[in-house]
C-alpha cells in the first residue's frame, strides 16, 4: 500500500515538473516571437524567431495534456485518499 502511495505521489511530482517546464517554454517561445531580437541575443542565436514559432505552435498540445493530467490526477488522488480513509 505504501509503495502504491509513493508511486502515485511520484507521478504527481513528475507531471507537476513537466507542466512547469511546458509553461516556461511557452512563455520563452512566446517572447521568442514577439521580442525576437532580444531573445535571439540572450540565447546566443539558439532560439530564432522561426524556431520559437515552430515550438510555440505545437506546445499547446503537451501543455493541455499536462494541465489536464495535473488537475485530474490531483483530484483523483485526493478522492482516492478520502475514500481509503
Amino acid at each position: 500500500m505504501t509503495d502504491r502511495v509513493t508511486g502515485a505521489v511520484l507521478v504527481q511530482k513528475i507531471i507537476r515538473w513537466l507542466l512547469l517546464v511546458a509553461v516556461i517554454l511557452y512563455v520563452i517561445t512566446g517572447f521568442g516571437i514577439t521580442e525576437f531580437r532580444t531573445v535571439e541575443t540572450l540565447t546566443f542565436g539558439l532560439l530564432t524567431k522561426n524556431v520559437a514559432f515552430r515550438i510555440h505552435e505545437v506546445l499547446w498540445i503537451p501543455f493541455a495534456v499536462l494541465l489536464s493530467a495535473h488537475i485530474l490526477y490531483s483530484l483523483v488522488l485526493r478522492l482516492w485518499r478520502r475514500y481509503r480513509t
Binding site: V23, I24, V27, I28, F31, E35, T38, V39
Partner: peptide, 8 residues
C-alpha cells in the same frame, strides 16, 4: 516566470 516578461 515573472521576471522574464517584466524585463523583456
Amino acid at each position: 516566470l515573472v521576471a522574464v516578461p517584466v524585463v523583456l
